[in-house]
Simulated assay, not measured.
Amino acid sequence: MQLTEHFKLEEFTYSPTATKLKIDNSVPDDLMPNVKLTAIKLEVVRKALGKPIVINSGYRCPKLNKRVGGVSTSAHTKGLAVDFHSSYGTPKQICQRLIDAGVQFDKLIQEHNQWVHIGFSPNNNRQIVLTAVKQGGKTVYLNGLV
């Protein structure tokens, strides 16, 4: 199902982990408006970068989210977040570009310098910027881009 010009529903629900574990990661009907909103917002992200983006992880049903180590309050489980990468540059460069371009988001995270997490809110985008790093074997979130 085509959600927007550049994004399909399958990009939001595909998960190697779900496939391997036979987890149904279909988006419930009541969350489809959130996924559509996220796809619309990702069009803005794509335009700001001037390059395609590749979704690593989009919607996650609660069972899948738990299996991949996501927190129970994750915006992924509401269809309001994606992890992605782009040929635009490094995750830090991508984050900086989105900030400089004035892209509206709820949360933007440079994840271990491997990918970018971006979350949206239907009501109040807080413009939170974080960097995820490993400290003592645990992921910690530092304010801003580090």
Rank of each mutant, 00 (worst) to 15 (best):
2 Q>Y: 08
2 Q>N: 06
3 L>F: 14
5 E>C: 05
5 E>N: 03
8 K>D: 14
8 K>W: 14
9 L>Q: 15
12 F>H: 04
13 T>C: 09
14 Y>M: 10
14 Y>G: 01
15 S>F: 15
16 P>Q: 09
16 P>I: 00
17 T>R: 15
17 T>H: 15
18 A>G: 00
18 A>H: 13
22 K>W: 04
24 D>Q: 15
25 N>V: 00
26 S>Y: 06
26 S>E: 14
26 S>F: 12
29 D>F: 05
29 D>K: 11
29 D>L: 06
29 D>P: 04
30 D>T: 01
31 L>R: 09
32 M>W: 13
32 M>D: 06
33 P>K: 15
33 P>R: 12
36 K>T: 06
36 K>E: 12
37 L>S: 07
38 T>F: 12
41 K>M: 12
41 K>H: 09
42 L>I: 11
48 A>S: 09
48 A>H: 02
52 P>W: 09
53 I>Q: 06
54 V>T: 13
55 I>L: 13
57 S>K: 09
58 G>W: 08
58 G>M: 04
58 G>N: 09
60 R>L: 03
60 R>Q: 05
63 K>R: 13
63 K>G: 01
65 N>E: 00
65 N>L: 07
67 R>C: 03
67 R>I: 01
67 R>N: 08
67 R>Q: 02
68 V>D: 15
68 V>M: 13
69 G>C: 12
71 V>R: 14
72 S>F: 11
72 S>T: 15
73 T>S: 10
73 T>Q: 07
73 T>N: 14
74 S>P: 03
74 S>L: 02
74 S>F: 07
75 A>S: 06
77 T>L: 04
79 G>M: 11
81 A>N: 10
81 A>T: 06
82 V>A: 03
83 D>Y: 08
83 D>A: 01
84 F>M: 07
85 H>R: 10
86 S>V: 04
86 S>Q: 02
86 S>Y: 11
87 S>L: 12
87 S>A: 13
88 Y>W: 15
90 T>Q: 10
93 Q>P: 06
93 Q>E: 10
97 R>P: 01
97 R>Y: 13
98 L>P: 01
99 I>S: 03
99 I>H: 01
99 I>W: 06
101 A>M: 09
102 G>F: 09
103 V>S: 10
103 V>E: 08
104 Q>Y: 07
105 F>A: 02
105 F>R: 03
107 K>L: 07
108 L>R: 00
109 I>N: 01
110 Q>I: 02
111 E>W: 14
111 E>L: 12
112 H>S: 03
113 N>M: 13
114 Q>M: 08
114 Q>A: 11
114 Q>E: 14
117 H>L: 01
118 I>T: 03
118 I>F: 11
119 G>A: 12
120 F>D: 02
120 F>P: 02
121 S>K: 15
121 S>P: 00
122 P>T: 05
123 N>A: 06
126 R>D: 05
126 R>M: 08
127 Q>G: 00
127 Q>M: 14
127 Q>Y: 14
128 I>Q: 05
128 I>W: 06
130 L>C: 07
130 L>I: 00
130 L>Q: 13
131 T>L: 01
131 T>Q: 04
134 K>E: 14
134 K>Q: 03
135 Q>I: 02
136 G>K: 08
136 G>P: 06
137 G>E: 06
139 T>V: 09
140 V>A: 03
141 Y>I: 06
141 Y>E: 01
141 Y>S: 01
143 N>H: 08
144 G>N: 01
145 L>P: 04
